[in-house]
Amino acid sequence: MRGFWYMIEAILAGIIMISFLLVLAVGYGKVPGEYVSLKGYEILHDLDQQGVLRSYVIDGNYSGLGSQIKLFEYNHSVQICDQAGNCSGSMPDAANVWIGNYYIIAGEDQYQPYLIKLYMWRL
C-alpha cells in the first residue's frame, strides 16, 4: 500500500515537472494560427498603406507583390483575383494546412475590384 502512494506521488511529481518544462518551451500556450492570421492581414494592410499594394494588383503582378512580403519561418504565395473570379498566382505548395488571408480592394485610380489572397505555411 505504501508503494502505491509512492507511485501516485511520483506520477504527480512527474506531471508537475513536465508541465513546467512544457510551459517554458517555445510555442506551447501560444496560438500560432491566430498570430499568423493577424500577421498576414497586417502585411497586406501595411503594403496598402505604403501605396505599394494596389499598383501590383492592378498590374496583376502577383510575383512582385509576393516579393514585397518577408516572413520568418513561413513560406507564402499570393493570388490576385478579379471580379469575374479569374485568379493569377499560385496556390500553396504545402502538405500541411495553411492559412489564407484575404484583402479586398475597390480599385486604385478607377473602379476595378480585386481580391488578394495571401497564403502562409510553415517551412
Binding site: 494560427g33 499568423v36 492570421s37 494546412v97 492559412i99 479586398i104 505555411w121
Partner: peptide, 19 residues
C-alpha cells in the same frame, strides 16, 4: 499544441476593417 489552421472566428474583424 495548436494546429496551423485558421480559426473561423479570427478573420471576421480583419475583413470588417478592410470593408
Amino acid at each position: 499544441g495548436q494546429p496551423l489552421v485558421q480559426s473561423p472566428l479570427q478573420d471576421m474583424d480583419y475583413i470588417l476593417q478592410n470593408l
